[in-house]
């Protein structure tokens, strides 16, 4: 069971976010492994463990100036990492990203591809399914549980009203929701081992996708970024045993009660 997990290194969401002059997300600070991706990495490690054979490869696109996030995935237990890093990729959209990642995944010919439902910075949420289409794979999105039964992947897929049991033949792509598994913390041994695990950095030239990536390939443009109409803070009271009463008063004033 060889599994590829798509991961992304993102600016720490807890820190203030901003756009640069070209309206791209400012990624100049420290990058971390998107927390949403840790669930896929953990799921992959558990599935390979259960299968008793195979390995987990993480693939990514973005700056390789800081690879702490990828090392983190390796420290959790992934066998190797591949990142496509190239200045020409700046401004690439979701479909361009899917083309780049699909080209890398194809070289690995995995049994299963895992990804988060969306990244925590761009949250476009279409890249995994675009990858599946480019690779000719079936896909099951929004998994809250994933199991392998022979050559079939069995997924509990979140729906608006509950969940569906969905199956697909392998190879397939599955996107996992946060909470599908509890991601492990990297052990000291894992962190030490990660330092010598293979981490391959590829350029766009290695993948022959030159005209399909970057801002030209994106075929969409941000025309403006404006401050949204903001809500202002209203009344605020310290609860001195009268908090509930005050809320009832407010609900009466807006005729909810």
């Amino acid at each position: 069971m060889n599994i590829v997990v798509c991961v992304k290194q993102i600016p720490d969401p807890a820190a203030p976010q901003s756009l640069d002059a070209s309206h791209n997300l400012n990624r100049s600070g420290k990058l971390i492994l998107d927390e949403a991706d840790t669930y896929g990495v953990e799921m992959a490690l558990q599935l390979v463990d259960k299968a008793g054979t195979g390995e987990v490869t993480v693939v990514s696109m973005g700056s390789a100036a800081d690879v702490a996030g990828l090392r983190n995935a390796l420290a959790m237990g992934a066998a190797k990492a591949v990142i496509v890093s190239d200045d020409a990729l700046r401004g690439t959209d979701a479909l361009g990203t899917a083309k780049v990642l699909a080209a890398v995944i194809k070289r690995e010919s995995p049994d299963l591809v895992l990804a988060a439902t969306e990244s925590s910075d761009g949250y476009t949420g279409t890249t995994p399914v675009q990858i599946a289409e480019l690779l000719g794979l079936p896909s099951i999105t929004f998994a809250k549980s994933v199991a392998i039964d022979g050559t079939t992947v069995k997924v509990e897929r979140q729906t608006e009203s509950g969940f569906d049991e969905v199956t697909a033949p392998l190879p397939a792509l599955v996107t996992v929701t946060a909470g599908v598994v509890e991601p492990r913390y990297a052990s000291f041994k894992g962190i030490m081992a990660a330092k010598s695990k293979p981490l391959e950095v590829l350029s766009v030239a290695d993948l022959s996708l030159a005209d399909q990536i970057g801002p030209t390939g994106a075929r969409q443009v941000i025309t403006d970024v404006v401050t949204a109409e903001s809500r202002s803070a209203g009344e605020k009271y310290i609860d001195e045993g009268d908090g509930a009463e005050r809320i009832v008063g407010f609900l009466e004033s807006i005729k909810v009660l």
Binding site: G125, T126, A132, E133, T141, R157, E160, A218, R219
Partner: peptide
């Protein structure tokens, strides 16, 4: 859930980008 699946599949099939959210 299904709308996003349709959009991603369609985008790759038509080779057209998608604007989400």
């Amino acid at each position: 859930y299904d709308g996003r699946d349709i959009a991603g599949r369609l985008s790759a099939r038509l080779d057209r980008p998608v604007l989400t959210n």
